[in-house]
């Protein structure tokens, strides 16, 4: 099936099998490998991207589902070479170690702060339910989210 998906502002057109997952489309067709695959079962959140402004697990979404939509991946978050406040906060607060879950974490926190600009630590922890990190114990990710909220004026 022929689909057209806008990813980070650029349009990609491809003929894909209906069974192709969105994450495979992003990684293999669009060549954007910043989005990761960590589990097969929608548990880990490594594959989170923004689809039409909301976070989705791109391993639990078919590429055909994304036809006509606009996707933001981790590669598209920084603007004009300037890091997004959430990226900056992850860096400042040591919110990552191996980096594998980081794209999903950053995009999840980005949406969280859009919905709740001034969250409590507990609300951040609740908001990270769908993302697994095996390295950080989450604590510095929570700190990063709170620092980003501060920086964004929440």
């Amino acid at each position: 099936m022929n689909i057209q998906v806008k990813v980070n502002g650029k349009s990609y057109q491809a003929d894909v099998e209906p069974r192709m997952l969105l994450v495979h489309f992003l990684r293999d067709v669009a060549g954007l490998t910043g989005t990761k695959i960590g589990c097969d079962t929608s548990q880990c959140g490594s594959c989170v991207v923004l689809m039409d402004g909301v976070t989705v697990k791109s391993c639990t979404c078919l590429a055909v589902h994304a036809n006509g939509s606009s996707i933001t991946t981790i590669e598209g978050l920084a603007q004009d070479g300037k890091l997004h406040a959430v990226q900056e906060a992850f860096w400042n607060k040591h919110g990552l170690q191996c980096g594998y879950c980081t794209a999903g974490m950053i995009l999840t926190v980005t949406e969280l702060l859009q919905r709740n600009p001034k969250p409590t630590a507990e609300q951040v922890r609740q908001g990270l339910k769908g993302n697994i990190c095996r390295c950080t114990g989450y604590q510095n990710i929570v700190r990063a989210a709170l620092a980003a909220a501060e920086a964004l004026g929440g």
Binding site: G34, W91, H94, G99, A103
Partner: peptide, 23 residues
């Protein structure tokens, strides 16, 4: 001193290359 990590810029922008990213 707790300086921020020098490996992070590639990791927070999706530009790091893990084995499965190699084509």
């Amino acid at each position: 001193s707790g300086i921020r990590r020098r490996e992070d810029p590639r990791l927070i922008t999706g530009k790091a290359t893990y084995t499965d990213d190699i084509k």
